[in-house]
Design a protein around this nucleic acid. Structure first.
Lengths: 252, 252
DNA sequence: GGATCATGTGCGATATATGAACAAATGTCA
DNA sequence: TGACATTTGTTCATATATCGCACATGATCC
């Protein structure tokens, strides 16, 4: 790509949108400038552009994103066949298991939920399509990382923070790499309260008709109801069935 | 705003992202150019920028959005306190009713789901936060339109397509305006299979502590289980309770 | 092989980014 | 309270980058 094939005004604008993350619903020009490391004048122009287009509100002091911004992400969720294709299978899975079933893909060091069928809520955080979790300590993340060449998986671990969320969280890269080998060999990953106390989950990869892993699906259950040791016996068979049902549906 | 306070390269890029709507997962440069009505060279630069930043994949012929694009919409969902604040109330509502409960806000002629607690799936389409429905034929849409000054509601109806989705769908603007008056007076809206056969729903506004409508919440049920005539008696009391519980929590 | 369509590129006209300068608002401290 | 220091938003001139057109090239289809 040539230098002139890059629209830096666009790139800067996207960076400004992403600055509205986490708890930052309202940003002043100066705050946005600090967060994005862009010049105040530049950020101001981006924000005013967003406001002019209806993607943001401006009260003269603070900018706030409007729901119109959801169109951007929704362009992906509705354009990609994956979520719609997975959804009925997740519904079925969730009903059979009596637990929540989800699907996610990898984006950098995180997994991104693309579809979900939830029973009652077990996690403290609210997962919806678009939600993100660190890959290293989520069952679907383990499956997706295990599908990568080991060098890439290592690179992702190196970029990850590897926080000790609970006493169970595995944070040693070598231990994680060894676990990826086991996942690759046995075809599933179980997480025993590594992300959050009281939550167990089991995941398997979803492969397309050429055997390439394109996503992961999982079932999550309260540890009090289903100990980690029982996850495999209870849920792996139905996850494998779903996996087999999906394979011929996924091309390219 | 001055002319030079607008970054047109940014605006053009956002337009390109939105071109990936509906069934358009893969776009060539020429296709994107037609959809956005932008010059091919411009679209090409925008798409290459998206690819360079990891928001899109490029196989030399077609561009595809990547899950990274979800960060943009998620910046809103996680930054805005509304979804997180509503979620536990929707969970509770959904459990009490034994039906799906949702919350949405208005964006132009559409409602946008910002939170949802779903029981079994009753609609053919899969609703998640970020999903959109035309406002004129959805229960939450009726509530949100009824909260606007009548001139604005009329303007939105004028811009809407007013499709006859089912035999029940109201498409006459005057009839809809009259219904908005009733909704305003009585404080709730019921939809009897106007969007999709077999689906009824009832919605109430969510107001902040100053009485301004900031969202709507609803309960949807299969018409076979709960006839429209029974929606009010069954669900309005619990919707009103939720409404009252939310009011003091919403400021500004 | 010619017509049609899609993509890539060079260039002049035009729009944008930059950093400094200024004005206004806000915070600080005696 | 008042004076000073900081922070923030805005404007400006100009160097720089982008836009859109026109043309060249490559693909595809009768």
């Amino acid at each position: 790509m040539r230098e002139t094939d890059f629209v830096s005004g666009f790139a800067r604008g996207l960076k400004v949108i992403e600055a509205f993350g986490e708890t930052r619903q309202r940003l002043s020009i100066a705050e946005a400038s600090k967060l994005t490391d862009l010049d105040r004048a530049t950020v101001r122009r981006s924000l005013l552009t967003l406001a002019e287009l209806g993607y943001a509100d401006y009260d003269g002091k603070f900018f706030t994103l409007t729901p119109k911004i959801l169109r951007l992400g929704h362009a992906y969720l509705s354009a990609t066949p994956l979520p719609a294709l997975l959804q009925p299978h997740l519904d079925h899975l969730s009903e059979r298991a009596g637990q929540s079933a989800s699907a996610s893909v990898l984006d950098g060091i995180e997994i991104v939920y693309v579809a979900r069928a939830s029973q009652r809520r077990v996690m403290s955080i609210n997962l919806t399509p678009g939600s993100r979790l660190p890959a290293y300590c989520a069952s679907m993340g383990r499956v997706l990382l295990a599908a990568l060449p080991e060098s890439e998986a290592r690179a992702i671990l190196a970029r990850s923070e590897l926080r000790q969320n609970t006493a169970n969280t595995k944070t040693d890269p070598e231990e994680l790499i060894a676990e990826f080998r086991r996942v690759r060999a046995e075809g599933y990953a179980v997480i025993d309260q590594e992300l959050e106390l009281g939550l167990c989950s089991i995941a398997v990869p979803v492969e397309n008709d050429r055997g390439v892993t394109v996503a992961a699906i999982n079932i999550g259950a309260p540890a009090a109801l289903v100990p980690a040791a029982e996850m495999k016996a209870r849920y792996l068979p139905m996850l494998k069935e779903t996996q087999a049902a999906l394979r011929p549906l996924l091309h390219r």
